[in-house]
Design a protein around this nucleic acid. Structure first.
Lengths: 212, 212
DNA sequence: TAGATTGTTAATCGATTAACAATC
DNA sequence: TAGATTGTTAATCGATTAACAATC
């Protein structure tokens, strides 16, 4: 079997959860984890867990389950967080600045090395160890620093325009935080993390729970 | 047919996109939109769009498509953003403070009326029009202000504990921003918006695009 | 050994797409 | 009228679950 080529997005989403949980076990010194323990903690079936982990080049052991250190290392490798991903944030509003200041990302290989805004009053102001840069410098920075990920943290009305600029500058992937759909060629990966949309999913879910 | 009872999550996610796009059309004065226009802009098939919209109590018109004002109103109603959802944020770190300061949410009916932190040095400091409150006041505030949504913006290590507190105080739904899985009883809705997990999905997607 | 757990195949379930009659 | 578009049924596709032989 050829491993981890084209794992479905649904499986990749769950792998981020397996990884988070296994990292916790490892930190606590736990050496083994079974598919049923993973399933119970994450609200899945053990079948799904074993099916998912079959995409990965790491085998469990009969009677014991999966060795946590090895599994963590393999999940990290598959997801690519063993690499350094140069990342820039476009939009120095509250959300954009918060991402730059958040430590979680750097710890996982996402090196935020630039923040940009079109507002002249924001350009030059400090955000952590960075200074807000002018949009003119976007393309040059992407090239010179070999930036592969762009985070779109601008209002919905300008999100697609920002995406065009990033794509023209040969970005490889976009994280879209704006409450709008972003179109990109197949060669550029797009992942949505639209918080306002998540809140709407939540309001629907609460309403339908009440109906039952 | 009984409308909008138990619409699948995949459909609800797309509805947030239909809504965002239709709001844009309305703001621009466009009166009609077809399933194929929606499909093309959002990267779907027109079949999916029509199938999705059949869950909603609003009909299109032959030859013309869907009337944008009526569709917007119905999507807003189904998703529940015509209601006011009292919301609190737990965690006054960069991300938590950014959410309080973000205007998008209030515009969509999510009224953030409290922010909490266990760090005594943060308690009392101002975040926009709010002051950071002590965790002691969490349950009381949820009850007195009829808060239904809790946003978890704390480190992964304490996220589940915070969830327990919110659930004990009879919260109805949780938006989880922490990079860990959160367990809740079936009566409490949970939606994940784990940004670090989204970045990992992106790094995997970029890697597999490169492989092709 | 007996029993627990994996890895994998086959069955089920649900979501997406295709097709087309009905409609304006 | 002719043509475009919906709404819905049926077909396809993919993801989840069940089952169980293989393993330690």
């Amino acid at each position: 079997m050829s491993f981890n080529s084209n794992i479905p997005p649904s499986v990749i989403k769950r792998m981020t959860k397996y990884l988070a949980y296994v990292q916790g076990l490892n930190a606590a010194g736990v050496e083994w984890v079974s598919s049923s323990e993973l399933a119970d903690t994450l609200g899945l079936t053990s079948s799904t867990v074993r099916q998912d982990l079959s995409h990965v080049d790491f085998s469990g052991t009969s009677k014991k389950g999966y060795e946590t250190q090895g599994l963590e290392a393999e999940l990290v490798r598959v997801l690519g967080t063993d690499l350094t991903w140069r990342t820039i944030v476009v939009g120095a509003g509250n959300l954009g600045r918060a991402l730059v200041l958040h430590e979680d990302f750097a710890e996982r290989g996402f090196d935020i090395c630039g923040i940009f805004d079109s507002d002249k009053r924001k350009v030059g102001t400090a955000v952590g160890h960075l200074n807000v840069q002018n949009m003119d410098e976007l393309a040059g920075t992407i090239r010179s620093k070999n930036v592969r990920i762009g985070v779109i943290a601008v209002p919905a009305s300008v999100a697609q325009n920002v995406a065009h600029l990033l794509i023209a500058a040969k970005i490889r992937g976009l994280l879209n935080l704006a409450l709008t759909h972003i179109t990109a060629p197949k060669s550029v990966a797009v992942v949505d993390a639209r918080i306002a949309a998540s809140l709407m999913e939540l309001s629907y879910a609460i309403k339908s729970l009440g109906t039952k």
